[in-house]
Amino acid sequence: MRTLTKLDTDSRRARRELHDQLQGSGPLARHTVDSQSQRQAGSASFHESAQKHVTGKAAYIDDIKTPADALHVALGLSPVAHGTLTKLDLEAVRQAPGVIDVITFNDVPGHTDIGPVFPGDPIFVDQEISYAGQCLFAVAATTLQAARRAVKLAKLEIDEQPASLDPVAATEREEFVRPTHVQERGWLENWGSIWKAYASVPPAQTRYPIHRPPPPPAAPT
């Protein structure tokens, strides 16, 4: 919010006026509950990990002690959002101090598409680069610093293409992530048989309560 303000009253006054709105004028959060009635509806409990958070004892993945011989992995990422990878020269990366191994798309023996629901999420770039930061290769080294430094030695050649950054223009070009589908209400040819199937299941045999659909509407005449 950019406005003209009288200087004779000074910016402090404007700040004061907005103070309650900026900072909130209600009571302290801890005063809004009766601490005697813990663990009841309408009362607050402390975060179960709060003590660990405030003492630094909450262990995150990065805090787990690594074995003495653990290798550290750093990833080589695409610097461009869209293009074709035409050359990936990792010789200098392999030769860098501390590097144990370097892998690319061609080193993955099993599935290379790790899309959990639909295909379309390659674990490494084969040729087509579809977003900035897409993974090109991985380096394992004796220290994280060695792995990160080695990544910088890769020689990349990319045939860069324009990035798709405008959703409206992308829709016009029909650049869809997934095939389009349509949801609509109306008469379903086999409505009657679906309802019959639902209605015929005895309640005792269902693991979950079945929400029974209403009887089928009359077919259009």
Binding site: L28, A29, R30, A44, F46, H47, S49, A50, Q51, K52, H53, V54, T55, G56, A58, Y60
Partner: peptide
Amino acid sequence: QQAMVECHGSQCGFCTP
């Protein structure tokens, strides 16, 4: 630390220390 616990000042807790 005590006040951060009592005031519900942490959620994921990563910035808390």
